[in-house]
């Protein structure tokens, strides 16, 4: 069935689209958590690309990379949550716009 036999190019396009959504999201959104999610989206878009290329390549290298990326992303989540949380607790807001003490 053609529906289920999408070519790798489709995955790559999807990956690029996801990445772009994430990248644009970081630029336009203001809530720290949302920004954070956008970054995660970008990482996962990269994962998708890695796995797709791995598929084209015919070995599992790319999938292994995706594994590492997942770990890194998780560590990033932990660190990010910790920072966001401490900010939230000390000033009751998670909006990046409210973080404006540092200006030149």
């Amino acid at each position: 069935m053609t529906f289920f036999s999408v070519s790798p190019t489709h995955y790559l396009i999807l990956s690029a689209v996801l990445f772009t959504i994430g990248a644009v999201g970081v630029l336009v959104r203001r809530n720290a958590i949302v920004l954070f999610m956008c970054v995660e989206l970008m990482l996962n878009a990269a994962n998708l690309a890695l796995v797709t290329f791995s598929r084209i390549n015919g070995n599992l290298d790319g999938q292994i990379m995706a594994f590492f990326v997942m770990v890194v992303a998780a560590a990033e989540v932990v660190v990010g949550l910790a920072i966001i949380m401490s900010i939230f607790r000390s000033r009751r807001s998670a909006s990046v716009d409210d973080a404006n003490l540092l200006k030149y």
Binding site: F67, M70, V71, A74, V77, V78, L81, A82, R89, R92
Partner: peptide, 28 residues
């Protein structure tokens, strides 16, 4: 309390992520 969720839940979430990642490596 105005959307402030007890810190414990975040802590649990973070711990979960750490150990879940461990599991990801343990499976394969």
């Amino acid at each position: 309390g105005g959307g402030r969720i007890p810190i414990k839940f975040y802590l649990t979430a973070m711990l979960f992520i750490v150990f879940d990642i461990e599991i990801i490596f343990l499976f394969p």
